[in-house]
Protein backbone atom coordinates (compact mmCIF):
# COMPACT_ATOMS: atom_id res chain seq x y z
CA UNK A 1 0.00 0.00 0.00
CA UNK A 2 1.41 3.35 -1.10
CA UNK A 3 0.99 6.29 1.26
CA UNK A 4 2.28 9.83 1.36
CA UNK A 5 4.27 10.15 4.58
CA UNK A 6 4.58 13.26 6.76
CA UNK A 7 7.07 12.31 9.48
CA UNK A 8 6.75 15.60 11.40
CA UNK A 9 9.53 17.75 12.83
CA UNK A 10 10.11 15.91 16.10
CA UNK A 11 10.83 12.56 14.44
CA UNK A 12 13.52 14.33 12.45
CA UNK A 13 14.74 16.27 15.48
CA UNK A 14 14.75 15.21 19.11
CA UNK A 15 13.13 11.79 18.53
CA UNK A 16 15.13 10.31 15.63
CA UNK A 17 14.33 6.85 17.06
CA UNK A 18 10.73 7.38 15.99
CA UNK A 19 11.59 8.07 12.34
CA UNK A 20 14.05 5.19 12.22
CA UNK A 21 11.69 2.65 13.79
CA UNK A 22 8.70 3.81 11.71
CA UNK A 23 10.55 3.44 8.42
CA UNK A 24 11.83 -0.01 9.52
CA UNK A 25 8.43 -1.46 10.39
CA UNK A 26 6.71 0.06 7.34
CA UNK A 27 8.28 -2.54 5.04
CA UNK A 28 7.13 -5.40 7.27
CA UNK A 29 3.57 -4.07 7.12
CA UNK A 30 3.69 -3.69 3.34
CA UNK A 31 3.59 0.10 3.49
CA UNK A 32 5.42 1.97 0.75
CA UNK A 33 6.24 5.35 2.24
CA UNK A 34 6.51 8.31 -0.10
CA UNK A 35 7.95 10.95 2.17
CA UNK A 36 6.73 14.51 1.72
CA UNK A 37 10.18 16.06 1.96
CA UNK A 38 8.90 19.49 0.91
CA UNK A 39 5.96 19.66 3.30
CA UNK A 40 6.20 22.24 6.09
CA UNK A 41 5.67 21.78 9.82
CA UNK A 42 1.95 21.64 10.68
CA UNK A 43 2.47 24.42 13.19
CA UNK A 44 1.42 22.08 16.01
CA UNK A 45 -1.61 24.28 16.67
CA UNK A 46 0.69 27.14 17.74
CA UNK A 47 0.67 28.90 14.35
CA UNK A 48 -3.06 28.29 13.77
CA UNK A 49 -3.96 29.73 17.16
CA UNK A 50 -2.09 32.95 16.42
CA UNK A 51 -2.99 33.16 12.75
CA UNK A 52 -5.65 30.73 11.45
CA UNK A 53 -5.14 31.78 7.83
CA UNK A 54 -1.43 30.99 8.01
CA UNK A 55 -2.19 27.57 9.54
CA UNK A 56 -4.77 26.89 6.85
CA UNK A 57 -2.38 27.80 4.04
CA UNK A 58 0.64 25.84 5.27
CA UNK A 59 -1.44 22.72 5.87
CA UNK A 60 -3.39 23.09 2.62
CA UNK A 61 -0.01 22.90 0.88
CA UNK A 62 0.80 19.61 2.64
CA UNK A 63 -2.67 18.19 1.95
CA UNK A 64 -2.38 19.19 -1.72
CA UNK A 65 1.02 17.50 -2.03
CA UNK A 66 -0.46 14.29 -0.56
CA UNK A 67 -3.49 14.57 -2.83
CA UNK A 68 -1.27 14.56 -5.89
CA UNK A 69 0.37 11.37 -4.60
CA UNK A 70 -2.81 9.35 -4.21
CA UNK A 71 -4.65 11.01 -1.35
CA UNK A 72 -3.71 8.95 1.72
CA UNK A 73 -1.41 10.79 4.09
CA UNK A 74 0.20 8.88 6.95
CA UNK A 75 1.34 10.60 10.13
CA UNK A 76 3.31 9.16 13.05
CA UNK A 77 2.50 11.97 15.46
CA UNK A 78 -0.78 12.58 17.32
CA UNK A 79 -0.17 16.32 17.08
CA UNK A 80 0.41 16.33 13.30
CA UNK A 81 -2.67 14.11 13.01
CA UNK A 82 -4.81 16.45 15.11
CA UNK A 83 -3.77 19.60 13.24
CA UNK A 84 -4.16 18.10 9.74
CA UNK A 85 -7.51 16.49 10.66
CA UNK A 86 -8.72 19.76 12.08
CA UNK A 87 -7.72 21.74 8.96
CA UNK A 88 -9.35 19.14 6.71
CA UNK A 89 -12.53 19.28 8.82
CA UNK A 90 -12.57 23.09 8.67
CA UNK A 91 -12.20 23.03 4.88
CA UNK A 92 -15.12 20.62 4.65
CA UNK A 93 -17.40 22.69 6.91
CA UNK A 94 -16.26 26.11 5.72
CA UNK A 95 -15.40 25.96 1.99
CA UNK A 96 -14.59 29.68 2.05
CA UNK A 97 -11.56 28.90 4.24
CA UNK A 98 -10.33 26.35 1.67
CA UNK A 99 -10.88 28.83 -1.13
CA UNK A 100 -8.82 31.44 0.70
CA UNK A 101 -6.03 28.97 1.43
CA UNK A 102 -6.02 27.91 -2.20
CA UNK A 103 -5.63 31.52 -3.30
CA UNK A 104 -2.43 31.57 -1.26
CA UNK A 105 -0.95 28.24 -2.34
CA UNK A 106 -1.92 28.56 -6.01
CA UNK A 107 0.98 30.99 -6.46
CA UNK A 108 3.21 28.11 -5.36
CA UNK A 109 1.76 25.79 -7.97
CA UNK A 110 -0.65 23.84 -5.74
CA UNK A 111 -4.42 23.57 -5.33
CA UNK A 112 -6.10 21.43 -2.71
CA UNK A 113 -9.38 19.87 -3.83
CA UNK A 114 -10.26 18.48 -0.42
CA UNK A 115 -9.60 14.82 -1.22
CA UNK A 116 -6.82 13.81 1.17
CA UNK A 117 -7.48 11.33 3.97
CA UNK A 118 -5.09 11.82 6.88
CA UNK A 119 -4.39 8.74 8.95
CA UNK A 120 -2.05 8.06 11.80
CA UNK A 121 -0.11 4.80 11.53
CA UNK A 122 -2.26 3.55 14.45
CA UNK A 123 -5.45 4.00 12.41
CA UNK A 124 -3.91 2.56 9.24
CA UNK A 125 -2.99 -0.59 11.15
CA UNK A 126 -6.61 -1.38 11.97
CA UNK A 127 -8.45 0.24 9.08
CA UNK A 128 -6.28 -0.45 6.05
CA UNK A 129 -3.55 -2.96 6.83
CA UNK A 130 -5.85 -5.13 8.94
CA UNK A 131 -5.53 -7.27 12.03
CA UNK A 132 -4.90 -10.47 10.04
CA UNK A 133 -1.89 -9.01 8.22
CA UNK A 134 -0.62 -7.63 11.52
CA UNK A 135 -0.92 -11.01 13.23
CA UNK A 136 0.88 -12.70 10.35
CA UNK A 137 4.05 -10.63 10.80
CA UNK A 138 4.41 -11.04 14.57
CA UNK A 139 7.55 -13.08 15.16
CA UNK A 140 8.14 -12.33 18.81
CA UNK A 141 4.96 -11.98 20.87
CA UNK A 142 5.58 -9.62 23.77
CA UNK A 143 4.32 -12.11 26.35
CA UNK A 144 4.88 -11.04 29.93
CA UNK A 145 5.27 -7.34 29.19
CA UNK A 146 2.73 -5.05 30.86
CA UNK A 147 2.09 -1.96 28.76
CA UNK A 148 0.04 1.14 29.56
CA UNK A 149 -1.31 3.05 26.54
CA UNK A 150 -0.92 6.82 26.27
CA UNK A 151 -2.70 8.37 23.27
CA UNK A 152 -1.92 12.08 23.36
CA UNK A 153 -4.74 14.65 23.27
CA UNK A 154 -4.76 15.42 19.58
CA UNK A 155 -5.58 11.92 18.39
CA UNK A 156 -8.63 11.81 20.71
CA UNK A 157 -9.98 15.36 20.88
CA UNK A 158 -11.91 17.08 19.45
CA UNK A 159 -13.76 13.96 18.31
CA UNK A 160 -15.66 15.71 15.49
CA UNK A 161 -12.65 16.54 13.35
CA UNK A 162 -10.91 13.23 14.12
CA UNK A 163 -13.86 11.18 12.89
CA UNK A 164 -14.32 9.51 16.28
CA UNK A 165 -18.08 9.85 16.13
CA UNK A 166 -18.18 7.67 13.03
CA UNK A 167 -15.40 5.42 14.30
CA UNK A 168 -15.52 5.33 18.12
CA UNK A 169 -13.28 2.25 18.03
CA UNK A 170 -10.37 4.60 17.30
CA UNK A 171 -10.38 5.33 21.04
CA UNK A 172 -9.46 1.70 21.76
CA UNK A 173 -6.87 0.88 19.10
CA UNK A 174 -3.86 1.18 21.42
CA UNK A 175 -5.38 -1.20 23.98
CA UNK A 176 -6.31 -3.64 21.21
CA UNK A 177 -2.86 -3.42 19.70
CA UNK A 178 -1.06 -4.08 22.99
CA UNK A 179 -3.03 -7.32 23.33
CA UNK A 180 -2.59 -8.30 19.67
CA UNK A 181 1.17 -8.02 20.10
CA UNK A 182 0.95 -10.48 22.97
CA UNK A 183 1.57 -8.01 25.78
CA UNK A 184 -0.70 -7.38 28.74
CA UNK A 185 -2.57 -4.09 28.68
CA UNK A 186 -2.66 -1.94 31.79
CA UNK A 187 -5.87 0.04 32.29
CA UNK A 188 -5.64 3.35 34.14
CA UNK A 189 -7.44 6.69 34.00
CA UNK A 190 -4.58 8.69 32.45
CA UNK A 191 -4.39 7.02 29.04
CA UNK A 192 -6.36 9.74 27.25
CA UNK A 193 -5.09 12.70 29.24
CA UNK A 194 -2.62 15.47 28.52
CA UNK A 195 1.12 14.86 28.93
CA UNK A 196 1.63 18.54 29.75
CA UNK A 197 4.05 19.24 26.88
CA UNK A 198 2.18 22.25 25.44
CA UNK A 199 2.65 23.99 28.79
CA UNK A 200 6.29 23.07 29.32
CA UNK A 201 7.68 26.47 28.43
CA UNK A 202 4.86 28.49 30.03
CA UNK A 203 4.45 26.68 33.33
CA UNK A 204 7.18 24.11 33.73
CA UNK A 205 6.35 22.73 37.20
CA UNK A 206 2.68 22.15 36.39
CA UNK A 207 3.54 20.59 33.04
CA UNK A 208 5.94 18.15 34.71
CA UNK A 209 3.40 17.32 37.43
CA UNK A 210 0.78 16.60 34.76
CA UNK A 211 2.98 14.10 32.93
CA UNK A 212 4.44 12.71 36.15
CA UNK A 213 1.00 11.92 37.61
CA UNK A 214 0.06 9.80 34.59
CA UNK A 215 3.33 7.87 34.64
CA UNK A 216 2.93 7.29 38.38
CA UNK A 217 -0.60 5.97 37.95
CA UNK A 218 0.45 3.62 35.14
CA UNK A 219 3.39 2.41 37.22
CA UNK A 220 1.24 1.83 40.30
CA UNK A 221 -1.13 -0.23 38.16
CA UNK A 222 1.79 -2.46 37.28
CA UNK A 223 3.03 -1.12 33.92
CA UNK A 224 6.55 -2.13 32.87
CA UNK A 225 6.41 0.51 30.14
CA UNK A 226 4.08 2.90 28.36
CA UNK A 227 3.48 3.26 24.61
CA UNK A 228 2.55 6.45 22.80
CA UNK A 229 1.76 7.36 19.19
CA UNK A 230 2.86 10.97 19.87
CA UNK A 231 6.51 12.11 19.93
CA UNK A 232 5.58 15.31 21.78
CA UNK A 233 4.14 13.19 24.59
CA UNK A 234 7.35 11.17 24.40
CA UNK A 235 9.41 14.32 24.89
CA UNK A 236 7.58 15.09 28.12
CA UNK A 237 7.08 11.54 29.42
CA UNK A 238 10.57 10.23 28.58
CA UNK A 239 12.73 13.32 28.01
CA UNK A 240 11.48 15.15 31.10
CA UNK A 241 10.76 12.11 33.29
CA UNK A 242 13.66 12.61 35.75
CA UNK A 243 12.47 16.20 36.33
CA UNK A 244 8.83 15.06 36.52
CA UNK A 245 9.81 12.60 39.26
CA UNK A 246 11.33 15.51 41.18
CA UNK A 247 8.25 17.66 40.54
CA UNK A 248 5.91 15.10 42.14
CA UNK A 249 8.54 13.75 44.59
CA UNK A 250 8.03 10.15 43.52
CA UNK A 251 10.34 7.77 41.68
CA UNK A 252 9.01 6.96 38.20
CA UNK A 253 11.57 5.09 36.06
CA UNK A 254 9.04 3.87 33.55
CA UNK A 255 10.29 3.59 29.95
CA UNK A 256 8.16 5.06 27.18
CA UNK A 257 8.03 3.29 23.81
CA UNK A 258 7.07 4.95 20.56
CA UNK A 259 4.30 3.01 18.80
CA UNK A 260 6.59 1.80 15.95
CA UNK A 261 9.18 0.62 18.48
CA UNK A 262 6.64 -1.65 20.18
CA UNK A 263 5.55 -2.97 16.79
CA UNK A 264 9.17 -3.45 15.77
CA UNK A 265 9.96 -5.52 18.85
CA UNK A 266 7.07 -7.86 18.07
CA UNK A 267 8.16 -8.03 14.42
CA UNK A 268 11.57 -9.30 15.50
CA UNK A 269 13.78 -6.22 15.14
CA UNK A 270 16.52 -5.85 17.71
CA UNK A 271 16.26 -3.11 20.38
CA UNK A 272 19.30 -1.41 18.83
CA UNK A 273 17.71 -1.34 15.37
CA UNK A 274 14.76 0.44 16.96
CA UNK A 275 17.10 2.72 18.94
CA UNK A 276 15.62 1.60 22.24
CA UNK A 277 19.07 2.30 23.64
CA UNK A 278 18.59 6.02 22.96
CA UNK A 279 15.98 6.89 25.55
CA UNK A 280 16.39 9.09 28.61
CA UNK A 281 14.68 6.45 30.77
CA UNK A 282 16.38 3.09 30.34
CA UNK A 283 14.33 0.43 28.55
CA UNK A 284 16.59 -2.31 29.94
CA UNK A 285 14.31 -3.76 32.64
CA UNK A 286 11.25 -3.79 30.41
CA UNK A 287 13.17 -5.53 27.62
CA UNK A 288 14.45 -8.17 30.02
CA UNK A 289 10.84 -9.21 30.52
CA UNK A 290 10.80 -10.37 26.91
CA UNK A 291 14.33 -11.74 27.24
CA UNK A 292 15.98 -8.98 25.26
CA UNK A 293 19.07 -7.01 26.11
CA UNK A 294 20.00 -3.49 25.24
Amino acid sequence: MKVAFHPGCVSKGACPELYISATKIAGTLGLELQELTEAPCTGAGVLSEQNPELGDSLNALTLAMAESMGGTLMTICSTCQGVLSSVNHTFEKKPERLEKANQTIQDQGYTYKGGTTVKHLLWLLFEDIGVEKLKSVIKRPLTGLKIAPFYGCYILRPSDSLGLKERPERKTYLEQLIELLGAERVDYTGSGKCCGFPMLTFNRDKSLAMGGNHILEAKEKGADAMVTPCPLCHLNLDGQQPDAALAISRPLETPIFHLPQLLGLAFGFSPEELRLDHHVVSTKKALEKVELKV
Binding site: C153, R157, C194, P198
Partner: peptide, 12 residues
Protein backbone atom coordinates in the same frame (compact mmCIF):
# COMPACT_ATOMS: atom_id res chain seq x y z
CA UNK B 1 -4.78 32.52 29.05
CA UNK B 2 -1.23 31.15 28.80
CA UNK B 3 -1.76 28.55 31.53
CA UNK B 4 -4.14 26.52 29.35
CA UNK B 5 -2.53 23.28 28.17
CA UNK B 6 -4.52 23.11 24.95
CA UNK B 7 -5.84 19.58 25.65
CA UNK B 8 -9.33 20.10 24.15
CA UNK B 9 -11.05 18.48 27.18
CA UNK B 10 -13.29 21.55 27.57
CA UNK B 11 -14.23 21.49 23.89
CA UNK B 12 -15.03 17.81 24.15
Amino acid sequence: IWDCTHCFECVQ
